[in-house]
Simulated scan of single mutants.
Amino acid sequence: MSRETIEHLNLHTLIGNTDQRGTAWHYRAEHQGAEPNHYTGPVPVADVERRLFHWNAASRRVGVEIAADITTMTHLSADGVPMRWKVIEDRQAICRDDTEHLMGIFTPGYQMHQYRQWLVNTVADILDDDLAISSAGLLRGGAVAWVEVSVPDSITTPEGVVFRPNLLATTSFDGSIATTFKRTVTDVVCDNTREAALGETGETFKVRHSRYSHAQLGAARDALALVHTIADDFAREVQALCATPVPDVSWNKFLDTYVPRIRDGVHLAGKTLTLADKKRDALNRLYRHDQRVAPWAGTAHGVVQAVNTWEHHEGTVRGTTRPERNMLRAVTGDFAKTDRIALETLRRVLV
């Protein structure tokens, strides 16, 4: 099950532009609290600060419980043994200053990136009439946060691909991700996330939580300005992929390479073979019959779209919900890695 309850998602995520995009999967009117978390237009910056980022991360000393004698003890253990607390000088605990919820434990060199400074202030610097906050939220008890900037209206390419350019700003207090600013694209038809562009590098700007990281805030603001170039870059990517033909024989070779039934000359068997066949069947169904993919079957775009749609909507999910998993995979770049692997595999079989 998800670490995030439906109630949490209704209270601690903010979803914008619902007039164009509809409500989020987790919307439940009965869990909305004093005010709804959905907005017909953009999410106001002030609401992100007030409703999500009204607290700061704070450094706390870390102690460990050790055995003591009667003269040094501070308390008894559950078994009645004298114990005392010893401060660990080379560690710090990062907690919320409103609830004292523990988010992570680090060395003294760890630098906190406060959400209001790194996610809200940097994003607010680039907002104009064409850009607005489309979503923001907290996960893992506040240990992970994001703010997404988007254009209000979707864009349609000449090839019939409907997409929305985004810029995702995210960071964490549990060590799971560096502070990251990245260009993404949402495929409106199937709500998949892609990075723009597959063949390019330098589309992600990361800042580690180190002692000198605050010196990079200016560079982070410059990176955010990249959102203005996403539409043209992604449209060129789509055009190139749609112009790359994939005959049926190449599609079958792609399946044999991407989801093989034979490895190192040995035929798969048992559960491994069952899982491989299930994935192959699903990819083939998406590629040939699903309206999120089939209109571009026979092209490289159709192949990448089939893999991306499978990863977002049909791949196995453990320990969380699919939407939460998808958001975290978009943040960490897992989806971009999957797209690149699929495209590299296709290029090999097309040669």
Rank of each mutant, 00 (worst) to 15 (best):
residue 120 V to G: 08
residue 115 Y to D: 09
residue 202 G to T: 07
residue 134 S to Y: 01
residue 181 F to E: 07
residue 99 T to E: 10
residue 160 G to I: 07
residue 189 V to K: 10
residue 143 A to E: 07
residue 183 R to V: 10
residue 151 V to L: 07
residue 101 H to L: 04
residue 154 S to C: 04
residue 206 K to I: 02
residue 205 F to D: 07
residue 111 Q to M: 09
residue 155 I to L: 15
residue 192 N to S: 10
residue 92 Q to T: 11
residue 94 I to W: 04
residue 185 V to D: 05
residue 170 T to H: 09
residue 211 R to N: 04
residue 94 I to G: 05
residue 144 V to G: 00
residue 107 T to K: 12
residue 94 I to R: 13
residue 125 D to W: 08
residue 121 N to Q: 15
residue 184 T to C: 05
residue 135 S to N: 11
residue 117 Q to A: 11
residue 177 I to V: 14
residue 117 Q to L: 11
residue 141 G to T: 01
residue 106 F to D: 07
residue 172 S to E: 06
residue 97 D to Y: 00
residue 193 T to E: 09
residue 198 L to I: 14
residue 118 W to S: 06
residue 137 G to K: 08
residue 149 V to R: 05
residue 197 A to V: 14
residue 98 D to Q: 10
residue 118 W to Q: 11
residue 160 G to Q: 11
residue 150 S to G: 02
residue 106 F to H: 10
residue 199 G to Q: 06
residue 111 Q to E: 14
residue 124 A to Y: 05
residue 130 D to S: 15
residue 116 R to C: 06
residue 135 S to Q: 14
residue 144 V to D: 10
residue 157 T to P: 13
residue 146 W to D: 12
residue 189 V to Q: 13
residue 205 F to A: 11
residue 128 D to A: 01
residue 185 V to S: 00
residue 130 D to V: 07
residue 169 A to T: 12
residue 146 W to N: 09
residue 161 V to M: 06
residue 208 R to A: 11
residue 102 L to K: 02
